[in-house]
Computed example of a mutant assay.
Amino acid sequence: MGQGVSRRVLAALAAAAVGAALLTAGGAAADDGVRWLCRPGLADDPCRGGLATTDVANGGTVAGAPAGDKKIDCFYVYPTVSQELTPNASLKTTPQLVGIAEHQAARFSDVCDVYAPVYRQRTLTALLAGGLYSDAQRAAFTRIAYSDVLQAWKTYLSVHNKGRGVVLIGHSQGTGMLRRLMREEVDPDPSARAKLVSAILLGGNVVVRKGSDRGGDFQNIPLCRAENQTGCVLAWAAFGKTPPDNARFGRAPESSTDGSPAGPDYEAACTNPTSLGVDRPGTASTVLRSEPLVGLLGIAAKITYGGAPPSAATPWLIPADRYTVQCVHANGAHVLQVTPQGDARTLRASPTPDWGLHLLDVNIALGDLIRIVAAETAAYTS
């Protein structure tokens, strides 16, 4: 071969090697320095896969939405799941990340193409040993985590979005990341708001002014009050009993060190997914993943259910137990109250009473969320 050809061949081989390394390291691909847990085109994408669902009460199987092009995207930021021993997680795709994406995000592939970045989140280790760190250290851990989410969002917009509408989905720490992202990058920017189909921000204390649907975290983006409303926020924290005095969720913080709203003029947002407009009590459309969660969250799930969670032969199940949900003000908190119907299993706060039903914030009404996103998509794309 000529020297020029040899150089081109070597360059192509080197590029292929780099690409293969990016695809195999940690089990996810990277672009512009972003490592994706979920993204269209990934070989092993936990946010896709089989959507067949067993309806336990009726004994039948329900098929998920057919594969094919979706009209919008979803950008998902997962909650605190990492069991790595450092305060901030690495960028490895661990079984805990895969498991939570399957449980919380995969069902949304019924209605959208799901993007989910791996980020250096504050780990469960940092959460359990929180008293060992100073306020400045904890703030530094959060800055590291947020820098990854922000970079992923900017990369998503510049490389992958291509003018499509997007739903932001977060839970717990993921909601904390997206609250800041929306405050700083979406709410003040009309062009970014125009892309927002909605934001689903659960278990993370989204704040509004008392008596208003906005004016707390977001000045321009209201809470959702109709299923076909777009450019709005769905938010709640689920509790099976009256929140205790030390509840972690459902109250606006008394003070803030990061510029987020705090104080007596604000309250935690709550939108009832069964009745967005008038908040009547309604039966939640609960959809659960059949496989058990791995690690510490799997233990927490057994506490929540008082034993093994419901399971089925299909990837998903609609449990026989039904629950009524409604937003309530109780003991100074504003939460989504979850009440068992008939002889449905009583759900327990986990891991301790101050957490409420945090582990089920997403799945307790996952069917409702999918229905709402489908309605929003129709409105947005029309």
Rank of each mutant, 00 (worst) to 15 (best):
V118S: 03
A268T: 09
G356I: 08
A192T: 12
I364E: 07
P79V: 04
G2A: 05
G176L: 10
L296Q: 14
T93G: 14
R143A: 06
P243Y: 12
A312T: 08
P315I: 06
G50R: 13
A57G: 09
L157D: 07
Q151H: 10
S134T: 15
K241A: 07
R193I: 05
G250F: 10
G342K: 10
G41V: 02
R251S: 09
T271A: 02
G240T: 15
R179Q: 04
P281H: 09
P87A: 12
G342I: 02
R371A: 10
G282P: 00
I72R: 02
L42P: 06
E184C: 01
K241Q: 10
W316N: 03
T283M: 06
P351K: 08
R251K: 15
R35S: 00
F218Q: 05
A25N: 09
I372Q: 01
H334M: 11
K70D: 06
G203I: 11
G298T: 10
A375F: 06
C224D: 00
L276D: 01
L97P: 04
A313G: 06
L296M: 15
A199I: 00
L132T: 13
T381G: 02
L234C: 07
F218C: 07
G49W: 15
D343I: 07
L223A: 10
I100M: 05
L223G: 04
A52K: 05
H329N: 15
L10R: 13
A226M: 11
L366K: 05
D189E: 15
G170M: 08
T314E: 15
N246M: 04
A17E: 06
D55K: 04
G99C: 09
I72L: 06
N363V: 15
A65V: 14
F218L: 10
A333S: 14
A140W: 07
W36P: 07
L13K: 07
A320N: 06
H334E: 10
Q219V: 12
L288F: 12
A192G: 02
A101V: 08
N88C: 07
L37N: 03
A105L: 03
A25D: 13
D343T: 15
Y323V: 01
A237C: 11
Q3T: 13
Q137R: 03
V167E: 00
L202P: 00
G26Y: 08
L369F: 14
L13E: 14
A139Y: 14
T257W: 04
Q121M: 09
A330H: 04
L178S: 12
H334I: 10
L178D: 09
A247Q: 01
A349I: 03
F141A: 02
H160R: 11
G131E: 14
A300G: 10
D265I: 09
V167F: 01
D45E: 13
V373T: 11
H103Y: 05
S275E: 07
V328S: 00
I303R: 08
M1D: 09
V98L: 09
P243V: 12
K195I: 00
D31C: 01
Y133D: 04
R371M: 11
S198K: 02
K92A: 15
V98G: 04
N205H: 09
Y323C: 01
L91E: 11
M177E: 13
G282H: 11
R143W: 00
D55Q: 06
G282S: 08
T324H: 02
D113E: 15
C224N: 02
V167G: 00
N331S: 11
Q326F: 03
S290F: 12
Y380N: 02
I72P: 00
A312Y: 01
